[in-house]
Design a protein around this nucleic acid. Structure first.
Length: 563
DNA sequence: AGGGAAATAT
DNA sequence: TATATTTCCC
């Protein structure tokens, strides 16, 4: 497949060599690593640690870069998307550890030519030139940026390509997909060209990035003025001015590690993404495409960009946090790690390691999270355990002090006995204030109203849903739980429960029993629901052993052997 | 200071 | 209506 490059790209000797790559990665370490890798591949790399700098560089000399590689993280998606919008002319490849369809979609919709998931192989990196070629290819004769001329010329020299390109006059060429000659990713519409709609993102309007043809007409979308979002709002934030000088403000060169937030990227302003679908298309309203170059030079300063009405305003207003699936996932992981009753905003924030969000944001999200749980769990519980048991010592044990909130106990009451607090303060899970059983409700049972969540791209998966396990046990990507790891229950109960949760609907009876048994193992002093008999000591021990638990806490061992 | 939840904004 | 932000109270 990769036939060509050597034979055909005669115009640019050693073709990929010398291609200028703009590298944008908040994590400077990662950036430099990538940089060296790219350099080994003979690309010329210009790396930036924040989008403002990158945008600035682009606006000052737009034609200089052939392709951009941008790292997306849960925390920087806003900035990245902003970048995408602003750098429409530059074929932009996203790279990320994130495996989120919605994030990918957003990026693609906003014009990314490709979304590469890490780890990146050298092959992937090596082939980024394809996008440059495609762009050169698709661009109208006159619109080929100076820097791409060589590439385009190379193409011209290729017989097979010739027709297409020449024909490219504009649209006639539709049939002759140039893609055939370009190995690799065929999907994607890359730059603009409505001619080649992006197969990969059918539902999105491809027009988003109009690019090439300098036409920047407002791509079709005039779906009302939903731009509203931006401009207006800011009444609060001052700043209005905005001199495009975007760049300066934040310089975050330090490794993201945990230096805490500090750097808040403010971009936003219009936040194109916010909601996928529809908006995406419209999103760009703000941006005027014009700005861009095509006509190089222009005024450096104001050209930059997006500004215009709302685009990248540098205004530091509040930045509305978009709880993307990734971000939420991090949130959930943090909460799970801490345990519900210790999950307080500041700690969650710490664990999330996401810059750009504040404790308040987390608190707010936590509030919502809890609310959902309260709302949903009872139902789940009820459904599974329709035998409310009167009892009312209730609601206190697990809850440290106040916290009348939860309708169910923090999960470690059931599943993650944090050494210290399991026995002492535990409360009969039999029922809670509302009289609901809670055995069947592990820490993260079903909070997944998800379908209604616009950003849940995987209806079938629990991963991104509220309160549900983030990963299936087998994937083991779940971070170990520091507080319980090895102490009482060395290995994977957590996942076990997750799994149970998941299969619950499939085999209720079995799972319920299984779960109850485990519950009994963990908390022998509890009464069993549903008239189940306690397992024998032997079976309990066997089960524990099977799970790799060799040492049995005295309570279990001694308290009640069998019923 | 910081958590939590109500009030408020979008 | 739902979600995020702001405000208020502990």
């Amino acid at each position: 497949m990769i036939c060509t490059e050597d034979d055909q790209l005669l115009g640019w000797k050693d073709f990929p060599k010398g291609l200028k790559v703009l590298l944008l990665d908040e994590d400077c370490n990662s950036a430099s690593e990538m940089r060296s890798r790219l350099e080994k591949l003979d690309y010329i790399v210009y790396s930036f640690c924040n989008e403002n700098e990158a945008l600035s560089a682009i606006s000052n000399k737009s034609e200089d870069f052939h392709v951009a590689i941008v790292e997306v993280t849960a925390g920087n998606s806003d900035g990245v998307l902003q970048f995408l919008e602003s750098a429409k002319d530059l074929p932009t490849i996203m790279t990320s550890n994130i495996h989120s369809l919605s994030t990918m979609m957003k990026c693609i919709a906003l014009g990314a030519v490709e979304f590469l998931q890490k780890p990146l192989s050298d092959d992937k990196l090596k082939n980024i030139w394809q996008h440059v070629v495609r762009k050169a290819f698709n661009a109208g004769e006159k619109d080929v940026p100076e820097s791409l001329k060589p590439v385009k010329e190379s193409l011209v020299s290729v017989p097979q390509l010739q027709p297409v390109k020449s024909a490219a006059g504009d649209k006639s060429s539709n049939e002759t997909e140039p893609f055939t000659t370009v190995p690799g990713n065929n999907n994607e519409h890359s730059s603009g060209c409505d001619k080649y709609p992006a197969p990969s993102t059918p539902q999105l309007k491809h027009g988003v990035r109009s690019v090439d043809d300098g036409d920047c007409q407002e791509h079709t979308i005039f779906s009302t003025e939903q731009d509203s979002g931006e401009h207006d709002g800011d009444a609060k934030s001052v700043e209005t001015t905005f001199n495009n000088t975007v760049a300066e403000s934040t310089v975050q060169t330090s490794p993201r590690e945990q230096q805490g937030q500090t750097i808040v990227k403010e971009e936003n302003g219009s936040s194109p993404h916010q909601k996928m679908e529809a908006d995406i298309a419209t999103s760009s309203p703000s941006n005027n495409c014009p700005d861009n170059r095509t006509s190089h030079s222009a005024e450096p300063s104001k050209a930059s960009a997006p500004h215009s009405s709302s685009g990248t305003k540098t205004n530091k207003k509040k930045m509305k946090v978009d709880w993307s699936p990734e971000l939420h996932k991090k949130f959930v992981q943090a909460v799970e790690q801490l345990g519900i009753d210790q999950a307080i905003p500041s700690r969650i924030l710490e664990l999330m390691k996401v810059e750009g969000i504040t404790r308040h944001n987390v608190a707010s999200h936590l509030q919502k999270y809890r609310m959902h749980r309260r709302q949903i769990l009872p139902k789940e519980v009820e459904r599974r355990w329709p035998h409310p048991q009167p009892r009312d010592s209730v609601q206190r044990g697990c809850y440290p002090h106040h916290t009348p909130i939860m309708t169910f106990p923090p999960y470690h009451c059931n599943h993650v006995p944090a050494a210290g607090q399991l026995y002492p303060a535990w409360v009969p899970p039999a029922s809670y204030p509302n009289g609901l059983q809670v055995w069947g409700s592990p820490y993260y049972p079903a909070w997944q109203p998800a379908d209604s969540w616009h950003w849940n791209p995987h209806p079938g998966l629990h991963a991104d849903t509220w309160g549900s396990p983030v990963m299936p046990p087998s994937l083991g990507s779940y971070p170990p739980y520091p507080q319980n790891g090895g102490v009482y229950r060395p290995n994977g109960m957590q996942n076990r429960y997750s799994m149970l949760e998941k299969s619950f609907d499939l085999h209720p009876a079995e799972e319920v029993i299984d779960k109850v048994v485990k519950e009994a193992i963990t908390k022998p002093w509890l009464p069993l629901p549903l008239g189940l008999k306690r397992p024998s000591t032997e079976s309990v021990l066997r089960e524990l052993s099977r799970q790799g638990i060799s040492t049995v806490p005295p309570q279990i061992n001694g308290s009640r052997g069998r019923s």
